[in-house]
Design a protein around this nucleic acid. Structure first.
Length: 495
RNA sequence: GGGCCGUUAGCUCAACUAGGCAGAGCAGCUGACUCUUAAUCAGGAGGUUAUAGGUUCGAUUCCUAUACGGCCCA
């Protein structure tokens, strides 16, 4: 369809005409002396810019063009910003100006020139020389409305980034967020590591994994659903403070809240407890928010959220009673819980145990109400197979989850380092799996063996980076904060 | 997996409720124009209406299926 498009055909013809004039359409020998940002700084600080004697060699993409008979203004953009340029025949000569007339919005150009102020006061580069650096064959989307079609924005994110400055800002902010987390841990003597994404036994979360196959080893492998068990092996190996910021993969539905690959921060600290991590978490999110936004509160959708700690802490059961409206007397009664769930229209599949039912009720009834940062603690042991039991109540674990803006943002706990209990917990998970719960943990004897060599008392936590980026960028969909979100392939790509 | 909505020119959108020659702005093209900034003025061009069927004298419009996307629910 595109091939018959008038606009594209014209561009091809133009490119051919330029090539016939011995113009290189894709040269790479232009040397840039200044970015847009550097020129603006130069103007502020040095007189030679103002008196028009300083020469600048600049390059970028033409993003808007206003052409007259023998002169033209255009804006061009590099990665630091956008600047207006003024080209006139009197300055560059007849032949070069005739060539310049063949340039289009979307082309990359290199200009050498001096700066001046137009009568409206806008600093502008007056071209002494202008060269084509790359001829664009396809036209950019409409200049005023930009690119709106969500499908096109995701499939051709490069166009989205060229046309929509707010989208560009989201991903710049995302980079700053990740950098701020990284700095936070590096300042505290944590070591950044990379652990396997291809694992023989997927562990560290309750989720369905992707499967793949290694031909040479003749071995099935899973894409990791979490890095947890490998990071704890590193603590066993003597790296007392480690963190990893990287992708995990879960073979589940795609929605505005879920992408099959997503980014998690996980960190582990020896000789710390879940309570230490809760304090660290308050500090960490406060730090990152301050670094990125310059303040510790922000607006997310309808709500204003303040990240200043300390945050509210409540137990899972109290949350269910207070915010979920559940009668305290039924919390340990599986049948009555199922009845209650049914009365609320909440479907509980398979023969789930009390802990699972409580978690499900919490997801539906409580989670959306936790707008301000809130820690929920005291999770049942049967849904926390890797967490240390609470010293005073063996049925609950030393675990917390952090909720902000009605979503789970982090999950942390004191780690279970008793290998005997760990094996029992795995066996319990295996029984669940055999009872039909496909998300239950696998038995991982290799990990139990590692624990048998001794893991120091440790606490660890995982943070959903994409979700946190959504909060700080006020994004309603996870696709707005992932550069290339997963989409179905189109008919053309199918083969 | 289910429900609702969408897909029309390179891009942004009309033509809906009532089936009757598919329109506009931007981009592109031709011409004019050496301080414009969504430049302006004049002219001309651009379409397999997502795909495949059906109903009809006639379908962008009504019906069915499919593909892709969005929102909501599970």
């Amino acid at each position: 369809m595109d091939e018959t498009s008038e606009v594209i055909r014209r561009r091809h013809e133009k490119a051919r005409a330029l090539a016939d004039e011995d113009i290189d359409l894709y040269p790479n020998d232009f040397k840039v002396s200044h970015t847009v940002e550097a020129v603006r700084k130069h103007i502020d600080q040095l007189a030679d810019a103002v008196d028009g004697t300083a020469m600048f060699a600049m390059a970028g993409r033409i993003v808007g063009l206003r052409s007259f008979g023998k002169a033209a203004f255009f804006h061009f953009r590099d990665y630091t910003g956008q600047l207006q340029a003024y080209v006139k025949q009197d300055e560059i000569g007849r032949q070069p100006y005739a060539l310049f007339k063949q340039f289009d919005v979307g082309d990359f150009i290199g200009i050498k020139g001096v700066v001046f102020q137009t009568k409206t006061g806008e600093w502008t580069l007056l071209a002494k020389e202008i060269r084509l650096l790359c001829k664009a064959i396809r036209p950019l989307p409409e200049k005023f409305h930009g690119l709106r079609d969500p499908e096109k924005r995701y499939r051709q994110r490069y166009l989205d980034l060229v046309m929509n400055p707010n989208v560009r800002d989201i991903f710049i902010k995302r980079a700053h967020i990740v950098q701020a987390f990284r700095n936070f841990f590096l300042e505290r003597s944590f070591m950044e590591v990379e652990t396997p994404m291809m694992q023989p036994i997927p562990g560290g979360a309750e989720a369905t994994p992707f499967e793949t196959f290694h031909d040479a080893l003749g071995m099935g492998l899973f894409l990791r659903i979490a890095p947890e068990l490998y990071l704890k092996r590193l603590v066993i190996g003597g790296f007392d403070r480690v963190f990893e910021i990287n992708r995990s993969f879960r073979n589940e539905g795609v929605s505005s809240q879920h992408n099959p690959e997503f980014t998690m921060l996980e960190f582990y600290q020896a000789y710390a407890t879940h309570k230490d991590l809760m304090s660290l978490t308050e500090e960490m999110f406060g730090f990152v928010t301050q670094q990125v936004l310059g303040e510790t509160h922000f607006k997310y959708q309808e709500n204003t959220i303040d990240m200043t700690g300390p945050w509210r802490r409540l137990t899972l059961k109290d949350a269910l009673i207070e915010l979920g409206g559940i009668d305290p007397s039924i919390l340990d009664d599986r049948e009555r819980l199922l009845d209650f769930a049914g009365s609320q229209g909440i479907e509980i599949r398979k023969a789930k145990r009390v802990g699972k039912i409580l978690a499900k009720l919490f997801d539906v009834l409580v989670e959306p109400k936790l707008i301000e940062p809130t820690f929920v603690v005291d999770y049942p042991v049967e849904i926390s197979p890797l967490a240390r039991r609470n010293s005073s109540d063996p049925n609950i674990t030393e675990r917390f989850e952090l909720f902000i803006g009605g979503r789970e943002i982090a999950n942390g706990f004191s780690e279970l380092n008793d290998p005997v209990d760990q094996r029992r917990r795995f066996l319990d998970q295996v029984a669940n799996r055999e009872a039909g719960d496909q998300e239950s943990h696998y038995m991982d004897e290799d990990y139990v063996m590692a624990l048998e060599y001794g893991m120091p008392p440790t606490a660890g936590e995982g943070v959903g980076i994409d979700r946190f980026v959504m909060l700080l960028t006020n994004a309603a969909s996870i696709r707005e904060v992932i550069l290339f979100p997963q989409l179905k392939r189109t008919g053309q790509q199918k083969k």
